[in-house]
């Protein structure tokens, strides 16, 4: 990315990035898309989140489901790693725990594609500042 020469340039960049981010999660925005976050801190990776991350990236694109798959740090649910968070545009995020490749496949087919409720979700028990 280009060098920011002033504080104003930073603020402009932030506004542009924020708009893009907001548009991603709005149900009716032209940019809107499903967001998948895979926990890739040491705890997640040690429990096997790397293959899950690759699987989500590859399979969503193979199955023609437009989605943004990103790695993130620890969500705090170390007992249930690997954990992944799915946000369907216009809906609240849902976190799943103990995700292996089989579970990942179920999440893609049933939760994402068919919009069904499936087992294994973890209640988000915090607010974020």
């Amino acid at each position: 990315m280009a060098k920011l020469e002033t504080a104003n340039a930073l603020m402009e960049l932030r506004e542009a990035l924020k708009e893009k981010g907001a548009a991603l999660s709005q149900a009716n925005s032209p940019l809107s898309t499903i967001q998948v976050k895979v926990t890739m801190a040491t705890c997640g990776i040690a429990s096997g989140s790397k293959p899950v991350f690759e699987f989500m990236k590859d399979e969503l694109s193979k199955r023609n489901i437009p989605a943004k798959v990103t790695q993130v740090g620890c969500m705090g649910f170390c007992y249930a790693e690997p954990t992944i968070e799915i946000t369907i545009p216009g809906k609240s995020p849902v976190i799943f725990g103990y995700v292996n490749l089989k579970k990942a496949d179920e999440i893609i087919e049933h939760f994402i594609r068919k919009g069904e409720e499936i087992e294994g979700s973890i209640q988000i028990n915090y607010e974020t500042a």
């Binding site: 976050k37 926990t39 801190a41 993130v72 740090g73 620890c74 969500m75 705090g76 968070e85 028990n125 915090y126 607010e127 974020t128 500042a129």
Partner: peptide, 11 residues
Amino acid sequence: QIRIALRNCGV
């Protein structure tokens, strides 16, 4: 829980 120090972790 309120995540302040961890506000970006997992996000």
